[in-house]
């Protein structure tokens, strides 16, 4: 299972739909995507992780890097995730306090702060 990425715009948000496995091999592709979006002026990102089968610390690092980049432009990076096994990794590392995590893309897009 490789990584799949697709982006779409909803209002002033850019939704990045991620599928497959985010690990040490595939995470650089996600990093490139996030860097490209920020370089193109998309500072309010919603990363939809509902299709993610596996996430490791390399993936977490990329998301943290993305958050740093959008924050440098007073932007936001919100996550959409309902999968317990993925959420567990955010809890273990304390990153639930860093990322706003939503139940649905609609909720994340509607969120203001």
């Amino acid at each position: 299972m490789d990584l799949s990425l697709s982006t779409r715009t909803v209002g002033d948000r850019t939704v990045v739909e991620v599928g497959g496995e985010i690990d040490v091999y595939t995470a650089p592709k996600l990093r490139e995507q996030l860097v490209e979006l920020v370089n193109d002026g998309n500072y309010h990102l919603v990363v939809d992780m509902e299709g993610v089968d596996f996430l490791d610390s390399t993936g977490l690092g990329v998301l943290v890097g993305g958050l740093k980049r959008v924050r440098a432009h007073e932007g936001s990076l919100r996550l959409v995730c309902n999968q317990e096994r993925i959420l567990k990794i955010f809890r273990i590392t304390g990153l639930t306090k860093v990322f706003p995590i939503h139940n649905s893309v609609d909720e994340a897009v509607a969120a203001t702060d």
Binding site: S57, T58, G61, G65, I92, T93, G94
Partner: peptide, 21 residues
Amino acid sequence: SAAGGDSDGDDELGLAVITGL
């Protein structure tokens, strides 16, 4: 960085995940 030089602190995160799990 385990992912190749973005300095996102993956190494520390990786150990945090292992010891947490």
